[in-house]
Amino acid sequence: MKRMTSTAIAPAQMTPALPVSLNGVGRSFPGAPGEPERLVLRDVELKIAPGEIVALLGPSGCGKSTLLRQISGLDRPTSGTLTIDGTRIAAADQRCAVAFQEPRLLPWRTVARNIELGLPRGTDRAVGRARVAQLLELVQLSHAADLKPRQISGGMAQRVSLARALARNPGVLLLDEPFGALDALTRLTMQDLLVDIHRAEPTTIVLVTHDVDEALTLADRIVLLGTRFDRPGATISRILEVPGTRPRDRASTVLARLRAQLLDALGVPSHHDR
């Protein structure tokens, strides 16, 4: 218990943020018997700098999550290569950590024990406990450490999921619409929390979202995925730099203009008065 106070050791043991590179990544899935295979992603070229926050934005079903799964190593591309820090991504690459769309907590474990699952294999017990306590504080759940997942709200469960992903000090943090299922207010709070977390532990973050405002609030760059009408398979249709430093003014006029552009690109009328 004495070591719980050692919050200061965390940055020293921290894995540095790692760069990610996607070279001509494509993924197709076998079709139903007798049907041709289905191309979901094609020709994705992207370089992500260490410590950068990149939002993958696109309409539902365009392959955002599939792309994220390629980076995590949970799925393999059918063409192209992906590297983290210059080396090929392994199956379930341990330099990454994923927070899924659903919290995916083990229902029989307490909040603290769920976060423990995210620690690197073979972490010293005392070190692990200190890290979990620190993360609970970071996601403001110290009071809920001993609760079971069924006893906490959806927003809390997502924070647990986030803390679990952070537990290993990942070189790359992958977030698959982590706040998608939350109510609008909780989502804003969670976005601010993520900004704080990134400042405290500045890792590389790839965030899948279909929420334009979320992308604008959080990302350094927004990568738009889309499908051309004449070709199957989604690819990067645009990359936008988001100006300004976080935390950003949600009502900024610069962002309002970008929002309009993004919505246009997504095929939604923005009704923006230019």
């Binding site: 995590s72 949970l74 379930a92 950590a97 899924f100 995916r104 699952l117 690197p120 294999r121």
Partner: peptide
């Protein structure tokens, strides 16, 4: 399968 995948993502081998 979601839980199993989460476990896999966090580095659990078959036995773990």
């Amino acid at each position: 399968p979601h839980l199993v995948e989460a476990g896999r993502a966090f580095g659990l081998g078959r036995l773990a």
